[in-house]
Simulated scan of single mutants.
Amino acid sequence: MFDLFYPFDWLSTQIVTKLFGLSVESPLGGSLHFFFYDVPKVLTLLVVISFVVGTLQSFLEAEKVRIYLEGKRKLSGNILAAMLGAITPFCSCSAVPLFIGFIKAGIPLGITFSYLISAPMVDAVAVFLLLALFGLKVTLFYIIFGVTLAVIAGYVIGNLKLEKWVESFIWELKKQSTDIDELDIIEDETMTWEDRLKIGYFQSSEILKSVWLYVVIGIGIGAAIHGYLPTEFISQWIGKDNPFAVLFAVLFGVPLYSNIAGVLPIASALFAKGMPIGTVLSFTMAVTALSFPQMIILRKVLKPKLLGIFIGLTTLGIICVGYLFNAILV
């Protein structure tokens, strides 16, 4: 079978063996080979995937998402919100304006949270990167459980009636019209493929500029794990024989910050070292769904009690998902 990334593998081997004079079997050589192979591979995937996704997502704007969710109630609204979160490109930096826009439009709090959980954790770029690194089966389970987690957590928050713990200035904002301006609709309908390709190029370049450093750092950590972290350590602390492995992985991942492109190389290295796939993916979910900057941003609109409930419910859900992954994906 043709290996699309063979040139990167060959070049990495040449750098390690010819330039540095090391064996790829040695700890340092193995780490350097991992690094020089994964950096161009992941960045290439990131650029190509974000270009394709950005082009296709030009058909779905933030305002349209708000319109789709407006008026939805109960479980159906949570399901729709989680599914829309999985296909839209809005990240943690969009959390506050989206939250305000959704609440002003009358979208229930629980449905809003289903979207906010799903959007950073199960976005299209994450899906394609997971597919390239872990294969179709793992990717499908990640999508299913990620969306399910967003639906359940949002539904629970909605039924707890926690609107009183949203910052008061949100409710004081004057409700704006929810109608899309007719001119905007006309402009969207007449957008050419050239325009959409430009949007795809812009999104691809912006994503690359904003995340390349996290990718390199993540791959650097993954390379160190690949070359130097003893397999015995993985087996003892976060291996399949430790019943608390998923709990440790999630609690370690919650306070960290990385985007999905930066954390997946680390996850790939941990998996290669023997960490069970459920533990790996629960760690990935914890880092992406509960990133520290996003919590700081959300604190602007959520009182500490509601933010704490959001973090607690999502953390508990990710832990449960991790154990389910380990039970199913053996």
Rank of each mutant, 00 (worst) to 15 (best):
I79F: 09
K240S: 15
I15G: 13
V211N: 08
L160R: 13
L129T: 00
V166F: 13
V122Q: 14
F233P: 06
V48H: 02
V147T: 12
F36S: 06
Y214A: 05
R73C: 10
K198W: 00
I318L: 08
E206T: 02
L149E: 09
L56E: 00
G278Q: 05
L298I: 11
G322Y: 03
G71F: 01
A95Q: 12
V301N: 01
L173C: 11
S268L: 10
I260Y: 09
T190H: 15
P40W: 11
G218W: 13
L329N: 06
F141L: 13
P293C: 13
N78T: 12
N159R: 15
I309C: 11
L46E: 06
G85K: 08
Q236V: 04
I103F: 02
I277F: 02
V47I: 09
Q14K: 15
K240V: 10
F292D: 09
D123G: 07
Y155E: 07
V138Y: 03
F134L: 06
P40Y: 10
A267D: 13
L28R: 11
L256Q: 05
V42A: 00
A289V: 08
F325D: 09
T112K: 07
V301W: 05
F202K: 15
M191T: 14
E187M: 06
I170T: 06
K164C: 05
E25F: 14
I103R: 01
I199N: 11
F59C: 00
F252K: 07
Y323T: 12
T178P: 05
I49W: 02
A261Y: 02
L136N: 01
A289Q: 12
M83R: 01
I318E: 03
I117W: 14
